Amino acid sequence: MQRIMNFFKEVAREMKKVSWPSRKELVNYTAIVLATVVFFTVFFAIVDLGISKLIRLVFE
């Protein structure tokens, strides 16, 4: 039981050392991630549509 308590004390001590982003940074990083996900979703949807049309042209 003592080992578990020591583990959680160490975790708490290490978490105090973490450099957390500010609210503004967090919002900016989140917006960048969401924009990137949307961009790649649209990009791959267009590529998939193009490949599908190409395959239909070839096999029909």
Rank of each mutant, 00 (worst) to 15 (best):
V47G: 00
V18L: 07
N6Q: 10
F40L: 03
V18E: 00
V37M: 07
R13A: 14
F59L: 03
L34R: 06
V27Y: 03
K53N: 09
T30N: 11
A35D: 11
A35H: 00
F7T: 12
F40R: 01
F40Y: 07
T36F: 06
V11S: 03
F7Y: 11
F7G: 14
V27E: 08
E14N: 14
R3L: 09
F7S: 12
V37L: 05
V42E: 04
E10Q: 12
I46W: 03
V33D: 14
E14L: 08
A45D: 13
I46T: 08
I32H: 12
S19R: 11
T41Q: 05
T41K: 00
F40S: 03
S52P: 02
I32W: 10
F44A: 01
A35F: 01
E14R: 08
R23N: 11
R3C: 13
T36D: 13
I51G: 04
L26W: 11
V33Q: 11
T36W: 09
T41S: 08
A35N: 03
F39P: 00
V11K: 08
S22G: 05
F7W: 15
V27P: 05
F8L: 04
I32R: 08
V47M: 00
S22K: 02
K17R: 09
G50A: 01
T36K: 03
V42S: 00
L57S: 15
L49S: 09
F39D: 04
V47H: 01
L49Y: 13
T36V: 12
A12R: 10
V18N: 01
I4V: 15
E10A: 10
F44D: 10
S22A: 06
F40V: 00
E25T: 04
V37F: 07
Y29T: 15
A31R: 14
T41N: 07
S19V: 12
I46N: 05
V27I: 12
A31L: 11
T30W: 07
M15A: 12
I46V: 13
V58Q: 04
I4N: 13
K9S: 14
V58P: 02
D48E: 08
E14F: 05
P21G: 05
S52M: 02
F59P: 00
V11N: 04
R13H: 09
V37A: 07
L26P: 08
R13I: 13
R13G: 08
D48R: 05
A35M: 01
N28P: 15
L54N: 09
A45Y: 08
F39H: 00
T36P: 06
L34H: 02
K17N: 09
